[in-house]
Design a protein around this nucleic acid. Structure first.
Lengths: 220, 220
DNA sequence: ACCCAGAATGAATGAATGTTCATTCTTCAT
DNA sequence: ATGAAGAATGAACATTCATTCATTCTGGGT
């Protein structure tokens, strides 16, 4: 499983089917979360309404409060989903059962972080929409920092292994991990806000450059 | 003038003064923009209301639509103000009339970007609140990318000078500038969302590390 | 002292939105 | 075939918010 990220891009297949369908709770929840992601990406978090989300999902307004208690909760669960998807994907790569070679694992991580799945505008929009509100909403901070901490630890561990393998001197794994994470976040931001100035290709080159400067023997 | 950023922190000095005051248009506009910044930082962009802003400014509700045509416009102008303040501060340093020494100029830039003025929670909150909406609002994208482009050029020019002075080999000024900008953005994000994990001190150390790796003769 | 341009006010308005719940419909065990 | 559990619906409700504008007030010019 290389691409962990699910496809939220597709619109609902609905056409003329007016017949009411009954589906298990978990499936409806996911439908609504997917619709929420699409709506945030298209209209911005502050413009998202329940009517908008449920219409996008092809369902009625009441169903949102049936499966999630409130709008607040739906938004919270959507953030949790996106956060776990992103960090889960990273962690899977970094734990590296699939890829024993450290150099290749680094490559795979970079591909995941700046590859197709994650840098879809949709996902990035959602990501930063919540970051924007995080300053005022401790709940969001908590969700993000929880998954973030684990990913940070795994990254530090990976860097530690690489430093040992390469015998690099005067390099602090923790500091480097912080820097690399920040760099990736910043590149995502650039891809979202100024896509004209920063292409995906160039973003990858910049990140690769950072790694090469730190671990010259492991990159290229 | 080292610290370009104005103080938005203070609450209104108003106490028991009920007397209506007439002030020039420009002053009222700034009052409202400052109040908007405080409100966004405290409640989040999506929760900001006109009543909230005008009350914070110690003025009546009608005045917002008198000086700005609409809420949308007030928000737009607030973003423009914050963007220009931040990038203006950077550019002033990078043009470097005050500081001829390149090494010191780099230091000053770093101090500005991760120093008191800019990394106040208020300013960062506003910054990322708009980034979060940028995906869905081309107006915001345009405002940011306009000021961003100029700052990017100045940074690239500064790096070019440093590369020449230091005789550094195999370093591309443009790519490095992109990386450095992204790194700073990412660190700001970390300071905002996970302040527990990332202290301001450590953020500065990480950024300094990045620069030292690129320009070893110019840092320390 | 007087006047008036226009700055400031805030109650009123209408539109939009989150949430509720009585009702309808689907499914499946019997 | 039948009934019941509960999934799904959407009209109705209460609230909140941006915007308007008739009215009040202020300060400088005469």
């Amino acid at each position: 499983m290389t691409d962990v990220s699910s496809a939220v891009t597709e619109a609902l297949p609905e056409a003329g089917s007016k017949r009411r369908q009954i589906r298990p709770k978990a499936e409806r929840r996911q439908q609504l979360i997917d619709a929420t992601i699409r709506c945030i990406a298209q209209h911005g978090l502050s413009a998202v309404t329940m009517q908008m989300v449920t219409r996008d999902a092809g369902l009625s307004v009441g169903i949102a409060n049936l499966h999630f208690e409130s709008k607040d909760n739906l938004l919270k669960e959507t953030l949790r989903f996106v956060a776990e998807e992103y960090h889960g994907g990273q962690i899977e790569i970094m734990e590296g059962g699939d890829i024993p070679n450290l150099s290749e694992r680094l490559d795979a991580l970079l591909d995941f972080q700046l590859g197709r799945g994650v840098t879809q505008r949709q996902k990035m929009s959602v990501w930063f929409a919540y970051y924007g509100e995080a300053g005022a909403r401790p709940v969001y901070q908590k969700i993000v920092s929880t998954v973030d901490r684990l990913a940070a630890q795994k990254l530090e561990a990976l860097f530690t292994d690489i430093i040992r393998e390469g015998g690099y001197q005067g390099v602090d794994a923790r500091e480097l991990a912080t820097g690399y994470s920040a760099l990736i976040d910043g590149l995502h931001l650039g891809l979202l806000v100024t896509p004209r100035e920063l292409s995906k290709r160039r973003a990858r080159a910049v990140a690769r450059d950072f790694l090469r400067r730190a671990f010259p023997k492991h990159i290229y």
